[in-house]
Amino acid sequence: MERTEIHELSAAYALDALGPDELAEFEAHLAHCTECREHVAAFQETVAELAYDVEAPAPSPALRNRVLADARREQPKVVAMPRRRWAFPVAAAAAFAAGCVALGLAFWASDLANQLDEERTAVHLADEIIVALTDPNADRIPLEGADGILVVDDESSEGWMLVNGLDQAPDGKTYEAWVIEDGEAVPAGLFTGGDSRTVVPLTVPVSEGAIVAVTVEEAGGVQQPTQDPIFASEQAA
């Protein structure tokens, strides 16, 4: 598709008017086109005004309770643990990863968007990823040892990991993410995998020069890693 033509799709994207294939192609393009991300952001704001050109009765009062019950059901994971020395050399992570090939982001995003269309039950996942892909200030850092990326917001240093095709953690085990900086590992969240796409919001900021690694630990997580990482990111920019 020609460059000008794909830029035009930012309007259709903001209107949710792309078919599955076009959506996949455009989201892959968005991942590396700042100009389109800016267009999309501006168009989404314009498009949202159209929502006000609608007059309708109020929803049933029960809907409010349903919304709040949903929220209550989801307990946030709060992680506040002391920093510990990293229990194994970070070089081990790199050595492990060296044998593995990380796929390019464009392919990954495109494949992802295709899958998302089939996985609309996991709609919240799609939102997380769309935010990641359309965030003009985010750094995208490859993972080594797994198919995926680490996305880090430039301003807030907030990060999250998107991992493709991660097997479910064995019974009684969990995956645990770590932010490692100056040889110190800080726990950054637990997850179980098993979905074709796993999104891991990291619970601690990812500073410049840090890496993010993942180990398999006892269910419930640990305060410092006891295993070698199964995969890790390159250093955050």
């Binding site: 989404q44 949202a48 809907l63 919304v67 919240h124 965030d135 200030n137 301003e155």
Partner: peptide, 29 residues
């Protein structure tokens, strides 16, 4: 609407106010 507000609840930490209005974000969802 219920689904959209659940998404708001889940992904609010990812919302960055400097880049979009909250109303835009919610109505997009």
């Amino acid at each position: 609407v219920q689904d959209a507000f659940l998404a708001v609840w889940r992904s609010a930490a990812r919302f960055v106010a400097e880049r979009a209005k909250a109303s835009t974000w919610i109505l997009t969802l």
